[in-house]
Design a protein around this nucleic acid. Structure first.
Lengths: 180, 180
DNA sequence: GTAGTCATGTAAGACGTTACATGATTCT
DNA sequence: AGAATCATGTAACGTCTTACATGACTAC
């Protein structure tokens, strides 16, 4: 259900077509959703059925027609209610931790290789995130406070990567001097 | 597919019944899986079809019969292959960040309440995790290195909560002196 | 002429959660 | 009498991803 409100939120900022939303999801780290057609178009239809959005068809010469979606008053209310709702803690499930849990069958070098690949992957993702930020994110800047919130959201993501990298560093260090 | 290898890993430690696995999933933080019957029993059947596990039915007087699952040689190989496979970075998707992204419609006090509830929830989860650890986790300790790995996994989870708490603290602090 | 962008959508399937169903036994 | 534990499983539904389908236009 989070994608529903991610979309509703984006529409509360400005009207979007499904195609535009797809691009936003594909190249944002916070709103990342695998750039997934199916869910986006279906959710838009659902939101429309619930009266939370309206759409206008814009015909174009020499390009396919687009459905531009806008939020309704109802939609704004629904979004506000959801935003104030009880916050849930983040998902902890991490495939890599399960891999590590059964890694004792590997040699020290093999574990080290594994850790190094994980580290590389994390560094890459962090870099991509920072690069996206550097190039300027598409974000609402309706008030200084909103801009601050979005900065903190971006910070949250960087911090997660950095704390994970730290942790891997520790592991690598300990295992490199391992004697038993 | 991670649950498949979580189960296979547990079976590589010792034989389990579906019922036992359910309990492990329910009260572990790393292996948390909502204590979900459906997936566990189905996955066991699947593993069995693939020849990665075998089961033995233990009849009991005055208690329902149980199917005790054990890993096979094939299963051990499959687990080892998976453990050495390309690690993926953790999922970043966090519902709360999406809530915050559209929180600028709320007043400072409302945002503060939201942050406080999130903080409480995080503290609670961290406490639960630490309490579980304190009471002693059910974990394989076949070698000192394995024990170390499991300690680091637990550390990873605590670190995530702590870094998140830190971040909320910063937000709360900044917003409490907010002027614009 | 091949690939990419614009723009919509559907099909199929993997993964996850909640709730239901059964039935004996044991604890309070 | 009522709830919890032991032990298996299924049904229904929600979420998420990958891949397919169409078709005109544009840039190299």
């Amino acid at each position: 259900m989070a994608i529903k409100y991610a979309i509703l939120g984006l529409l509360s900022w400005q009207p979007f077509t499904g195609y535009d939303l797809k691009k936003v999801f594909m190249d944002s780290t916070v709103f990342y959703w695998s750039g997934n057609n199916n869910q986006i178009y279906r959710t838009l239809v659902q939101l429309h059925n619930e009266g939370l959005v309206t759409n206008e068809i814009h015909y174009q010469k020499s390009l396919p027609a687009k459905k531009v979606y806008s939020i309704t008053g109802e939609g704004t209310k629904a979004l506000q209610a959801w935003v104030s709702a009880n916050p849930e803690p983040p998902e902890l499930r991490n495939k890599f931790l399960i891999q590590l849990a059964w890694a004792d069958q590997l040699s020290n070098e093999e574990i080290n290789t594994l850790l190094e690949r994980y580290e590389e992957e994390l560094k890459l993702r962090l870099l991509m995130h920072k690069e996206k930020e550097r190039r300027g994110r598409a974000a609402p800047r309706r008030t200084p406070r909103e801009e601050y919130l979005w900065n903190m959201i971006s910070e949250n993501i960087s911090a997660k990567f950095e704390s994970e990298l730290n942790w891997v560093g520790q592991l690598k260090h300990d295992l490199s001097n391992w004697k038993d």
